[in-house]
């Protein structure tokens, strides 16, 4: 089976501390995957590597049908290849409106001159409204993003991700700060998105992960500890010892 993203034997050391240790993990073109693991397991660092923010010391990261390496690419090139990312701490442009945030993310040419000559089109407007509808912010398009609640900011960032139309969505802790209803809606959005692309979700909340109803990878000390269905990994004794036993018993 041809994979969308293949991470092989990747290691990263920060000041002598191995945050990622010989990590290998693959994703199919359309799949939903949850990544769980204790604090400091390297989940965010894994996303940093894939998106070009952190350069690994060794290993390969291979992308797409043409098997190109992402390691020599800049963050913006990787994003243009079709990898979108939602950050652990919601990062939206607070000084701008919800509509402007979504418009920036919308899949349109990224060069300065096409942006300068950019004209608003009906199609793009409709696309922004559709995304806003999906994330429950249809009535807030003219509001400043800084005024949104924490959960709404999370959604806006998910909306920006959807607007980008990436082939791989990396979603770091989307449910933090959300009410149970909001969480439910978030799982629906992510499941829907994963029908046409790969969606990777990092989340600590087990209820949330259960509702995603997908393959789960457990990270621990920078490498894969277990992989499989949620029931399969949660019955693994090591997983219970290092992760579930501690805070999520």
């Amino acid at each position: 089976m041809s994979m969308l993203l293949e991470v092989n034997g990747v290691s990263v050391t920060f000041d002598g501390f191995r945050a990622i240790n010989n990590l290998s993990i693959n994703f199919a073109p359309t799949e939903l995957r949850a990544i769980i693991g204790p604090n400091g397991a390297g989940k965010t660092t894994f996303m940093d590597i894939v998106t070009g923010k952190t350069k690994p010391d060794e290993g390969t990261v291979v992308w797409g049908e043409r098997n190109i390496s992402l390691l020599g690419m800049s963050e913006s090139q990787i994003a243009r290849e079709g990898i979108g990312r939602k950050f652990q701490k919601p990062t939206v442009f607070e000084a701008q409106t919800v509509r402007q945030n979504l418009a920036m993310a919308l899949k349109t040419p990224r060069g300065p001159f096409s942006v300068l000559m950019h004209k608003k089109t009906k199609a793009n407007g409709a696309r922004i409204e559709a995304v806003a509808e999906q994330i429950g912010l249809a009535d807030s398009l003219t509001r400043s993003a800084g005024e949104l609640s924490h959960g709404q900011k999370q959604w806006l960032e998910i909306g920006m991700l959807l607007a980008q139309e990436p082939r791989l969505m990396l979603v770091d802790e989307p449910a933090a700060g959300m009410t149970p209803e909001e969480r439910e809606k978030t799982t629906d959005i992510l499941r829907e998105a994963a029908k046409t692309r790969a969606v990777v979700v990092v989340e600590h909340d087990m209820e949330f992960v259960r509702r995603l109803n997908c393959k789960v990878t457990v990270l621990h000390e920078g490498s894969v500890l277990a992989e499989g269905s949620l029931d399969h990994v949660t019955s693994n004794q090591t997983v219970i010892d290092v992760y579930l036993g501690r805070s999520h018993a």
Binding site: S74, S76, A79, F93
Partner: peptide, 17 residues
């Protein structure tokens, strides 16, 4: 303005900052 407020985020949207 996005670059002013958070240039890393703009990069991850695919813009060559």
């Amino acid at each position: 303005k996005g670059i002013r407020d958070n240039e890393a985020r703009v990069r991850f949207l695919g813009y060559h900052v």
